[in-house]
Design a protein around this nucleic acid. Structure first.
Lengths: 159, 159
DNA sequence: CGTACCGCTGAGCATATTGCCCAGCCGGAA
DNA sequence: TTCCGGCTGGGCAATATGCTCAGCGGTACG
């Protein structure tokens, strides 16, 4: 669960050059191939590395509009709402949260006009009381993990 | 930019079994290896596939708490705020949005107590007027792309 | 109607990588 | 002192890769 400096370097290297092989990694890191392989196995079985799925850009798929919707749910309807939202392809992500909203979800759409269709589909369900939507304009920091990995590696070093 | 059915099957297959090789894919899909390779090259140069970076779980790294923060920015301070937030490792993602908030960011922390430290660091910057935070409890729909890919493939088929 | 182009096929080749094995070495824990 | 887990460096067969080629069908266009 705690990662050491070598784990951190492996993750960073992997994030920067995903197509790299174990052999090449061992060369770059200056350790034996078996070591890198063992570390990778450990990281995967620990769940630190969940997988190497392709990172697909919704915009390139024809869905250039992203929005966040905050939903208020009628008491006791949570499970039904989740199932409903899970069935909408344009819902990329769903969280339940504290605060005034009960759920927060990330949507994509083909256009601003299409976003209306998506929102209608999302909120067109009995358990949803209210929805407020914020359209994303820019994405100055795309989803990233490297800084956190470096932080975690440094922490375990320091300790 | 529009993907056809074969592209869709490649993406879905890749998402389900990322470690699969080009040769094995061609066998499963019943097409020639060169075809799969050409499609993959095209998908990557089109930007549909942005990469194959490792999906790292912040929780397994020791950051089990996730939160969304909505920030209000002082006029004209946008660029400075972005640079500031980009320098905080616990900021995994940042968007500028329409609506009452100006920015929306995803944070992680080692604990609820640690979240206070992260928030203090995030908002401890001159250009940020106000911040409201929602802690994530559950994540019923983790970030996903397969349903959207299937939708996009079906659309291009139907058309 | 003919032709050129484009994508897919099936094959071959040399090279590189993988998965797996081993013995040896080292440092920390019991 | 002894045991044990992690790292090393090597070797092995099997496999995948990157690349090339000619052939074939459909489509767009002159």
């Amino acid at each position: 669960m705690a990662i050491d400096h070598l784990d951190g370097r492996i993750l960073v290297l992997l994030a920067r050059e995903p197509r790299i092989g174990v052999l090449e990694m061992s060369r770059r890191l200056g350790v034996a191939r078996g070591t890198v392989q063992a570390r990778l196995d450990r990281l995967q079985s620990n769940g630190v590395i969940q997988g190497f799925g392709p990172q697909v850009d919704p915009a390139a798929l024809g869905y250039p509009v992203t929005a966040f919707a905050t939903l208020q749910i009628r008491q006791g309807q949570g499970p039904d709402v989740r199932a409903h939202l899970a069935g909408v392809p344009e819902v990329l992500e769903l969280h339940t949260t504290t605060g005034t909203g009960d759920m927060q979800c990330r949507l994509v759409a083909r256009s601003n006009a299409d976003l209306q269709r998506v929102i209608d589909r999302v909120v067109g369900f009995d358990g949803i009381v209210r929805a407020s939507t914020a359209i994303v304009m820019e994405n100055p920091v795309p989803l990233r993990i490297i800084p956190l990995v470096e932080q975690a590696a440094a922490d375990s070093d320091g300790v």
